[in-house]
């Protein structure tokens, strides 16, 4: 006897189910990632370099000074503790309490500022310098120092004014009237001068507590000390990715001395502010490491005030960030050293 054939009431149901399964499979295959992720050999991992400075420091960050300036580039402090911050077309002056007190108009964007011992304010504007008197009025403009100049730093004492010229890759020595009377740091085998290597417009100089001129040799990742006549006295270089050295193509970008005669340095790329014994070049301590800054970054300027607070001009935050040893930290450090 023949079995009766069972007929479904929905003859298309099986076909629809099969089509759905096949469709879902095809969709999943099609949407699957076809491209592999780049392996470790194709990625530059900077975390291991950043971790080097992830250590505790004795410095704490204070409330920053927010700027109402475009393209802020330079810092300076006068004898009364007023902070001068130069940006596009203006220098903003802040009182010792951090409040804005005045604004000095300038033509252009200053790259550096410096007070002379007689109270004049020298404003570096790439290839020339505007000289402002005590009332902050322009009384002179000095220029045409070399065929091409990029003035990145100024240091002045009673006798001389020194300009760090990144374009000419040397330090220009000026008399108090602005006349060029010498060039420092150019290669001279007879005088045992290796030559300043300046690959970028980060080129700084400063006087130490004895009034000696220290010049950064950024390409060699170190410092050189010169006499005003251009003779080199000493030098040290610290090329290293470790905390005690300088990394990258051109560092340190900025230097300053604190009241104890210690050298404070600032680096770009992985921003690190550190303290060195300038005479030996020995690393002493970290002020602030790269985790406090957006990486990569070039800090625009760094100075040390009379209270040994370290002021850093941060272009990403458009603010002056202040790092200071707190009393608790000072006390604990004193205890440690005992």
């Amino acid at each position: 006897m023949k079995e009766p054939v069972r007929k479904t009431k929905h003859p298309y149901l099986a076909g629809v189910v099969i089509a759905c399964v096949v469709g879902a499979y095809v969709y999943l295959i099609a949407s699957e990632e076809k491209f592999p992720e780049p392996g470790p050999n194709l990625v530059y991992d900077i975390r291991k370099f950043e971790e080097v400075d992830h250590v505790d420091t004795r410095f704490a960050e204070m409330a920053p000074i927010a700027l109402n300036l475009e393209d802020a580039r330079a810092l300076e402090i006068d004898g009364e503790g007023n902070l001068y911050v130069a940006g596009k077309d203006a220098i903003e002056v802040f009182g010792p309490d951090g409040k804005s007190v005045s604004r000095i108009p300038v033509e252009g964007t200053p790259t550096c500022l410096e007070f002379t011992p007689d109270g004049r304010l020298l404003v570096g504007l790439e290839d020339h310098i505007d000289v402002l008197d005590g009332d902050r009025k322009r009384i002179a403009t000095w220029g045409n120092f070399t065929e091409r100049s990029m003035i990145t730093a100024i240091a002045a004492n009673e006798e001389d004014i020194f300009l760090a010229d990144a374009a000419s890759r040397c330090v220009l020595r000026l008399d108090p009237s602005g006349k060029v009377i010498g060039r420092i740091g150019e290669t001279d085998e007879a005088r045992d001068i290796p030559g300043l290597e300046v690959p970028s417009p980060y080129f700084d100089l400063a006087f130490d507590e004895d009034g000696e001129l220290w010049v950064v040799n950024p390409g060699k990742l170190g410092l050189e000390r010169y006499r005003s006549n251009g003779d080199i006295v000493t030098s040290w270089y610290r090329a290293s990715l470790e905390l005690d050295g300088f990394s990258g193509c051109c560092n340190p970008t900025h230097i300053a001395f604190n009241s104890k005669g210690r050298l404070v340095t600032c680096e770009k790329g992985l921003v690190r502010v550190k303290i060195y014994d300038v005479s030996t070049g020995f690393f002493e301590e970290l002020v602030v490491g790269s985790r406090s800054f957006v990486v990569p970054q070039g800090v625009r300027d760094m100075i040390v005030d009379a209270s040994d607070r370290i002021l850093v001009l941060d272009p990403r935050k458009n603010a002056v960030r202040i790092f200071e040893q707190t009393e608790t930290q000072l006390a604990s450090h004193a205890k440690e050293t005992e």
């Binding site: 970028s200 990258g248 051109c250």
Partner: peptide
């Protein structure tokens, strides 16, 4: 002490290792 760095595009695979290194540590 200056050197020029030329990129041979036929060899370059666009991995950007050099880009990142130059950005972080150089210009």
């Amino acid at each position: 002490p200056y050197y020029e760095y030329k990129i041979h595009e036929d060899k370059c695979i666009g991995c950007a290792k050099c880009v990142k290194a130059c950005l972080v540590f150089g210009n």
